[in-house]
């Protein structure tokens, strides 16, 4: 029986999101990464080639299960069918850890399949913490949750996002997946100081960092969009360098690319840049 509040040991390494176009590269072996991360829901299936490939790659590399559909912020609670399927996959793959996002995706009637923003209220914090408790209990392991990028804030907000995340980790024992691009995107969209955000987090709870590209604001659109369809932008690299210098423990860093996915070599070059930014 796993302990839902068990300590997650820091993992020091650099990895990539595993995407279909790169299956052959990984199956051939020798890709210079320390882990891969997969979208959990893509492998929460009964069988077939995709699942077999993941199991094959898992023999050589640690795998992180990163979900997009847990909807940890749903007022109506979690989908037990989703949780059960995720548990089956986690038992099968034995991942380094399981993560999802601080967001909600669905109501009882419909699913947006998008990472929708939480109002930063005490009521929302209670709902999120109850759901995290349930998820960690069902999975028998502590989880990581990622700070989202967002395109609006709510008039009823009662705290900052970093205060919300801090309270969430304190109350549930969960860990953080720090998406540095998301911090940058949201800071520009909502006008907060990205450094203050970092300084306000319980950095000892961070176990992983995501780096990704975004679509800058345009004359027609003030908002920056988190797109994962291009290289990491320079201001995000700067923020990453500051973040890793502040962290009291090593973390797993990875490049996320979900659209316009380039040849593997291009992503590995970006990963080298991340390696070079680690403090000596």
């Amino acid at each position: 029986m796993h302990d839902p509040h068990a300590h997650i040991a820091p993992f020091d390494g650099f990895g990539l999101g595993l995407r279909r176009v790169h299956y052959d590269d990984f199956l051939a072996g020798g890709v210079p990464v320390d882990f891969v991360e997969v979208i959990s829901e893509n492998y929460m299936v009964e069988g077939g080639r995709q699942l077999r490939i993941l199991e094959q790659i898992r023999r050589d590399l640690p795998v992180i299960l990163h979900g997009v559909s847990m909807s940890i912020g749903s007022a109506g609670g979690l989908d037990e069918g989703h949780l059960a399927a995720l548990k089956r996959l986690a038992d099968r793959i034995e991942p380094l850890w399981v993560s999802d996002h601080l967001c909600w995706t669905r109501t009882s009637a419909h699913n947006s399949h998008d990472l929708l923003p939480m109002p930063l209220t005490c009521e929302a914090l209670d709902a999120v913490c109850a759901n995290i408790d349930r998820a960690q209990e069902a999975l028998g392991r502590a989880m990581l949750f990622e700070n989202p990028s967002s395109y609006l804030t709510f008039p009823e907000d009662e705290m900052s996002e970093w205060e919300f995340l801090t309270a969430m980790t304190q109350r549930t024992g969960c860990y953080l997946l720090l998406d540095v691009n998301n911090i940058y995107v949201s800071s520009r969209n909502h006008g907060f100081d990205a450094r203050a955000y970092l300084a306000g987090l319980p950095l000892e709870r961070v176990r992983q960092i995501h780096l990704a590209g975004h679509d800058p604001a345009t004359p027609e659109r003030d908002l920056i969009i988190d797109t994962h369809d291009r290289a990491v932008a320079d201001p995000v690299w700067s923020l990453y360098a500051e973040a890793v210098a502040m962290l009291p423990q090593p973390v797993a860093t990875m490049i996320e690319r979900d659209a316009d996915i380039p040849p593997l070599g291009e992503l590995l070059t970006e990963l080298d840049r991340a390696r070079a930014l680690l403090p000596a």
Binding site: R106, S112, D114, N189, L223
Partner: peptide, 26 residues
């Protein structure tokens, strides 16, 4: 979610232009 699914659905109470711009993205 109703506002995402239906352009004609009323915006939630208390929302202004900044929320409307964000809703367009969602």
């Amino acid at each position: 979610l109703a506002a995402i699914l239906d352009d004609a659905a009323p915006m939630p109470q208390g929302w202004g232009n900044s929320q409307a711009a964000g809703m367009d993205v969602y």
